[in-house]
């Protein structure tokens, strides 16, 4: 579903992302773990072409969806009208809009209100619904749990797990280790713009999460 070869992005003299090789198959969930400024968002944006890569290439096969780190939605529109737009644009049956909004637990009353009246958490759910709508084969999620409380995070993880079981490939960037361990099959540790290590998740346990944190700290403290 996703193939990245030698992807790199340089700003002036600074390499934000360097020598990234990555492949994700259908039904596979891959986590991108790193501290702030590691290059996670830049990597995802380079894959999508939002940022022009300096080196390498990224190939996305099939329909895909992207959830930005801090999603900005048109404030005067409602969540329902925004999702219906996506359905029209991508030739998706219109009932999938309501289904996606229901999946993220937004009420019928909320989905017709203007987005500027939403709380941070509600906006995040609306953005997630936009991403989920249309059942994309690949989802690129940049900090998808941002703004959600513990219950909301648990609910979203369930949604992602269900999608994964249906064959959706997921690339999720986050700095919340526990979420990553619960969902992902493998986690790529990123530091100083490079993918330093690929860790396979075996039993999705707390111990694995702690080990990952430790590995992340080690890589982050190392000089670039």
């Amino acid at each position: 579903m996703l193939k990245v070869v030698e992807l790199g992005k340089r700003y002036a003299e600074h390499w934000a992302v360097r020598d990234v090789h990555l492949e994700i198959a259908a039904g596979e969930a891959v986590g991108l773990l790193g501290a702030n400024g590691a290059g996670k968002s830049t990597l995802i944006k380079s894959m999508l072409g939002l940022v022009h890569a300096t080196t390498g290439s990224a190939e996305l096969n099939g329909p895909y969806a992207y959830l930005p780190e801090q999603p900005q939605l048109p404030p005067s529109l409602s969540a329902l009208s925004l999702l219906r737009f996506k359905c029209r644009a991508n030739h998706i049956p219109p009932d999938q809009a309501s289904a996606a909004l229901a999946e993220v637990r937004l009420s019928d009353a909320d989905i017709v209100r203007p987005l500027r009246q939403y709380s941070k958490g509600m906006r995040q759910r609306a953005s997630l619904a936009f991403t989920l709508c249309g059942d994309p084969g690949l989802m690129l999620l940049d900090e998808p749990m941002s703004g959600l409380d513990a219950l909301g995070r648990a609910q979203m993880l369930d949604v992602f797990k269900r999608r994964k079981e249906r064959g959706t490939a997921i690339l999720m960037s986050s700095h919340i280790v526990s979420d990553m361990v619960q969902l992902c099959d493998r986690v790529l540790i990123m530091a100083h713009g490079r993918i330093c290590e690929s860790v396979t998740i075996v039993d999705h346990s707390l111990a694995e999460a702690k080990a990952l944190e430790s590995r992340l700290a080690d890589w982050t403290e190392q000089q670039p």
Partner: peptide, 13 residues
């Protein structure tokens, strides 16, 4: 500026 265009460009468009 705020990145609202990302949701349109990644439809893709």
């Amino acid at each position: 500026e705020q990145g609202s265009c990302h949701i349109f460009l990644t439809l893709p468009m």
